[in-house]
Amino acid sequence: MTAIIKIEDLKRDFQVGTETVHALRGVSFEIQPHEFVAIMGTSGSGKSTMLNILGCLDKPSAGHYYIDGIDMSQCSKDELSTIRNHKIGFVFQSYNLLPRTTAIEQVELPLLYNNAVSAKERLERAEHALEQVGMENRRNHTPNQMSGGQQQRIAIARALVNDPVILLADEATGNLDTRTSYEIMSLFQKLNEEGKTIGFVTHEPDIATFTKRVVMLRDGHVVKDYPVDTKSAQAALESLPASDDY
């Protein structure tokens, strides 16, 4: 099986004033199809930088990054935009939904930037994505009419709608309470079972136990890379005490 994501000796330096900060100091790993990888680390470990590069939002200072065998480090800004649009689904910690915009429009948004998709197909795919995250009943709701968990589901639907090669989540449960976090993790597990490859950045070991593999970063290096004895988020949800449900 060929890796869909392959990074080789990736480095990323930031210039802060006169000092150079080495956020990534030569990271290499691969992600195979259908994997569910947690990228873990403490603050400043370089995990967000890692994710931004994986999501083609940022370019490495050195090293190579391949998606489906294409070297991203050689791509122009516009080419990266197109890659993001076609191959990547990004889920943010703070949802980043457009204000005063209905759920269905939020989900349609990435497809509006894809000329190959007709209006009819766009709507069908957006509706399908909403069904995948269980939000088909909220299609005309705006973000201020939804809870945090519901907003994150809409954001996940938006990430799914272009049928990405990999779904990348940046602390996707960071703004949510335990119960809602478990619900979101359960959704990610379901999507993974359906065949989605997922890269999940988190600093919570608890959340990482729902994934299949952990890549641990520290000071810009990979310090550990090990498979996880996956727990079911659904089971964890059911085991939560009722009093937690306030």
Binding site: G55, D78, R84, L98, P99, Y113
Partner: peptide
């Protein structure tokens, strides 16, 4: 408000030209 919106649009694949 719009800068965030622009950031999001670019993150999901809009080109600067768009």
């Amino acid at each position: 408000e719009r800068t965030k919106e622009i950031g999001l649009r670019m993150a999901i694949g809009a080109h600067s030209r768009d």
